[in-house]
Each structure stands twice: as structure tokens, then as C-alpha cells.
Design a binder for these strands. Structure first.
Lengths: 118, 118
DNA sequence: ATACGGATTCGACAACTGTCAAACTCGAAT
DNA sequence: ATTCGAGTTTGACAGTTGTCGAATCCGTAT
């Protein structure tokens, strides 16, 4: 069986990568990966990402995310959509609530990319 | 008159960080770090960063960066300024040419942040 | 059915971003 | 001193982004 990933949107198909310090990116890889970095390039989204990534149990309810910020619920939802479309998180609805979890593959690729070339 | 601010390097004073998966960021850290991620969130800048980070000899001339892109020299210069102000690269003028180098500290912090909690 | 509460989507708007051409700065070499 | 080549800065402009409130969707429990 494969995953019931209903809502997950197209995470860019990213083929790469070895550390930047080892080998420079071609333009296609740069386009793909920059989407993920851009998604982390907003303070609210970065903090959302960190809350999701560090959630005990591996997931967290939107209802626990929203009250942690000064902005409206619709803005939080919009930021979560950006993270989802970047391939950084995954969402699942259970009953009335929606839970978000990190997608470690892409985060790992970004980490590798930034890691000094050994 | 007056030195034109020498080389503005104001990398944000970033105090953190342990991996996101370990501990969630506070809002101040998120604001600081999101500047760096945002700087990497453009395809041209990401490719510039990778060319600088992988430059043999640890540095590369703007004259070698500019012809690698379809955009104008002034646009490249503008993107390089963004990377500089984010604290990701450093610039030095020698004779007629300007050379860029990576600043590994901040890159390392970003890598750590994205690294699985281990 | 109806109503309710959590979450997302829609529509609108000010602010910001990426881009270019033109003007400018800086150092080197005529 | 003048010119030249390499980079940066300036000014302008279209496109994108972050934000909100209102409308809508989707389960749950009356």
C-alpha cells in the first residue's frame, strides 16, 4: 500500500545534492531547491516549520500552531500551504482537526547542501 | 567624502541554534535566520552562492560569476549585495576586480538547524 | 436537518522584490 | 588628465508576497 497522501501537493522533484562547497548547482537544481529555501525565508513560516519539526509525537495540530502567533488564522493557513507546496511538511485531517508533520527528506537535502564539504 | 561605509557586512547577530527537530525557534531567532533563508530563496542567488561556496581557492571573481547567468550585471551585483547583507558571503576588492568568498559560520548554523535531531 | 467550530479559500490591497538601463565610482593604464 | 573596464548604485516598473476579513468547506454533535 502506498500513502494516503490526499492533499499533498507537488513537491518539486529534486534530484540533487552534494554539499555546495563540493560542487556548484546547475540552474535546474537551483530553481527546484530555491523554492524550499524561499519557503523558510519568512519568520512566521520558519517558526511554524520549527514547531512542526520539533513536535512531540511527530505531529502538531493547527489549533496549537495558530495561537502561537500574532497573525490571523487565515494567514497561518496560507503559510502552511506554502510549506506544504514546498514539500517541507505534510498535512492530515482527523476529525475536526488538521495535523502537520515534517517531511524529513527535503530538509535533509537542504542540510546536506549547506554542510561543509568534509 | 568619507569612506562609503567600507564594506557593509552587518550579518545579523544570530545566537542560535540547535537542530529544529530538537527545539523550536523563538521569534527573535526566527527573524534573524529567516533573512539567510530568504537570501537563498531565489534561483539566481542560490546558484551564485553555490558557485562561491565551491570556488577553487576559496574565492571567485565577479567577472567569472556574471557571464554564467542570463541576467544583467547590475542584477548580479544586486543579488550579491543581498547575499552579503545576509551574512552568507564576504567581498574584497583587489585591483579592478572584486572577489567573493563564503562565510562558513552562518552556512553551518543553517545546516545544523536543518539536520535531523540526532 | 441544523447549528457549531476548526481550517481553508477568496478577494482585495499595501509592501516588497527582481529586473533593466543609465549614471556613477574606483583603480589601472595609457 | 583622460580614458577604459569592472562593479555598484540609482530610478523606475511590473510582478509577487504577506496580510486581513468574509465566505466557504468539512466533520461533529445536537
Amino acid at each position: 500500500m502506498s500513502k494516503p497522501a490526499a492533499l499533498a501537493l507537488a513537491a518539486p522533484e529534486v534530484p540533487c545534492c552534494s554539499p555546495m562547497a563540493r560542487q556548484s548547482l546547475d540552474s535546474a537544481a537551483a530553481i527546484n531547491l530555491s523554492v524550499a529555501f524561499k519557503a523558510l525565508g519568512d519568520p512566521v513560516r520558519l517558526q511554524l516549520m520549527s514547531m512542526i519539526a520539533s513536535a512531540p509525537g511527530g505531529e502538531i495540530c493547527v489549533c496549537d500552531l495558530t495561537p502561537a502567533f500574532e497573525v490571523s488564522a487565515s494567514t497561518i493557513s496560507h503559510h502552511l500551504k506554502t510549506l506544504r507546496e514546498a514539500g517541507l511538511v505534510d498535512a492530515e485531517r482527523r476529525a475536526s482537526w488538521v495535523y502537520y508533520r515534517p517531511r524529513p527528506e527535503l530538509m535533509g537535502r537542504l542540510a546536506t547542501l549547506l554542510t561543509p564539504g568534509a
